[in-house]
C-alpha cells in the first residue's frame, strides 16, 4: 500500500510538467510566428498582465486567506515606481527598474498589510480598500509622481533591454511572457516550500499555526510583500507593455475587483487559476461582442456591450461559485480526470 502511492502521485506531476513545457513551447515558438498584432495587443498582452496580477493576489487571498481589495493600488505603485525610476535614473537597465519597482510595491504591501495583524476577513478587506483610495488620491494630488503632467497621464518609456527593442506588438508580448514565466516559476517554488505551507496553515487555522511555531505576523506581512511584488510588476506590464501609458484611472477600484474575480473564477489557492480566470476575463468580452454583432448587427453598440458584459459576468461568477466554488481550475481537473483512463 505504502509503495503504491508515490507512483500514482508522481504521474500527474510528470504529466503536469510536460503540459507546462508544451504550453511554453507554443507560447514562445508557435504564437510569435502565427500571431497577428491584434492577437498580441488586444488579447495576449493584457491576458498576461492580468494573469500575473491574479497570481500575485492569489498568493495573498487564495493561499494565505487574506482578502484584499487593493490590488490595483499595488499595480499603480509598481507602474508609477517603474516610470519614475526610468525617468529619474535614466542609466538604470530595464530589468533592474522592474525589479526595483516590484520591491517598492512590496514595501507598500507590507505597510498595507500591517492591519492584517489585527483584522481579518471583511474588516481587512475594508482596510485594503482604504489603500486603494489613498493611492489613487496620492497619484492625483502629488504632481511629482507623474512628472507634473497636467492630466496625470504619462507615456511609458520604451522597452529596451541591452539594445534589444521590445516595442512592437510581438516584442511586448514576448517581454510580458518572459516576466510572467519567471514570476510563475518563483510563485510555484514558493507554494511548494515550507513558507508556502505556512501561508496555508495560517489560512486554515491561525491558532494551530501559531502553536506549532509558525511566525504568524511575519508570515502575513511576507504574504503581503510577495503578493504586492508580483502585483506591482503586473502593474508595470499593464502600463508599459499593454496600455503604453501610465494613468491613475487604469488602476481604479474596478481593476481591483476584476483581479479578485479572476482569482475567484479561476480558483482560489491554485496557480493555474489565475491564468484560467484571466483568460476568461479577457476572452469573454470579445466573444460577447462578436456574438452580439452577429445577432443584432449594428444595434449592438459599445454601451450595450458593456452592460451585457457586466450582466453575463455577474451571472457567471454566481454560477461558478455555486456549481464549483474551487473555480475553473477544479472544473478543468475534473474534466481531465474523466478523460484520462485510470487503472
Amino acid at each position: 500500500m505504502a509503495t503504491a502511492l508515490p507512483v500514482t502521485s508522481a504521474q500527474p506531476r510528470r504529466a503536469g510538467a510536460a503540459g507546462i513545457l508544451l504550453l511554453l513551447a507554443i507560447a514562445y515558438g508557435l504564437v510569435p510566428l502565427v500571431g497577428t498584432s491584434y492577437l498580441f495587443e488586444a488579447i495576449l498582452t493584457p491576458f498576461l498582465a492580468l494573469a500575473l496580477a491574479g497570481l500575485g493576489l492569489n498568493l495573498l487571498t487564495g493561499y494565505a486567506g487574506l482578502l484584499s481589495l487593493g490590488s490595483a493600488a499595488f499595480m499603480a505603485v509598481g507602474a508609477y515606481a517603474a516610470f519614475n525610476l526610468s525617468l529619474r535614473l535614466p542609466g538604470l537597465p530595464l530589468p533592474a527598474t522592474i525589479l526595483l519597482a516590484g520591491l517598492i510595491a512590496a514595501s507598500a504591501g507590507v505597510i498595507a498589510g500591517l492591519p492584517a495583524l489585527r483584522l481579518r476577513g471583511f474588516y481587512l478587506a475594508v482596510s485594503t480598500l482604504a489603500v486603494q483610495f489613498f493611492v489613487a488620491w496620492a497619484l492625483n494630488r502629488i504632481g511629482w509622481l507623474s512628472n507634473d503632467s497636467p492630466s496625470g497621464i504619462i507615456d511609458a518609456p520604451r522597452l529596451v533591454i541591452a539594445g534589444l527593442s521590445f516595442d512592437d506588438a510581438r516584442g511586448r508580448y514576448l517581454f510580458s511572457l518572459t516576466i510572467v514565466a519567471l514570476l510563475t516559476v518563483l510563485a510555484w517554488r514558493l507554494v511548494r516550500s515550507p513558507t508556502g505551507r505556512n501561508l496555508v496553515a495560517i489560512r486554515d487555522h491561525e491558532t494551530a499555526a501559531r502553536i506549532v511555531g509558525v511566525k504568524v505576523a511575519r508570515t502575513k506581512l511576507l504574504a503581503f510583500a510577495l503578493s504586492s511584488f508580483i502585483v506591482g510588476i503586473a502593474g508595470v506590464l499593464w502600463a508599459f507593455a499593454y496600455l503604453r501609458t501610465v494613468e491613475p484611472a487604469g488602476f481604479n477600484l474596478d481593476r481591483s475587483f476584476q483581479i479578485l474575480f479572476i482569482v475567484i473564477i479561476g480558483g482560489l489557492g491554485t496557480l493555474r487559476g489565475a491564468f484560467l480566470g484571466a483568460g476568461f476575463m479577457v476572452v469573454l468580452p470579445l466573444l460577447l461582442s462578436r456574438l452580439g454583432t452577429a445577432l443584432l448587427g449594428d444595434g449592438f453598440d459599445t454601451g450595450t456591450l458593456e452592460m451585457v458584459q457586466r450582466i453575463v459576468l455577474g451571472t457567471l461568477i454566481v454560477a461558478v461559485l455555486i456549481r464549483e466554488p474551487a473555480g475553473l481550475a477544479a472544473l478543468l481537473d475534473r474534466a481531465f480526470r474523466r478523460l484520462s483512463p485510470r487503472s
Partner: peptide, 19 residues
C-alpha cells in the same frame, strides 16, 4: 484544529514549523 486543505504529510511537516 488541522490544516484541512493540506495533506496529511504537510500537516505533520507543519509541526516542525518552529525548527
Amino acid at each position: 484544529a488541522l490544516f484541512k486543505s493540506l495533506s496529511v504529510v504537510e500537516n505533520v511537516l507543519s509541526g516542525l514549523a518552529n525548527v
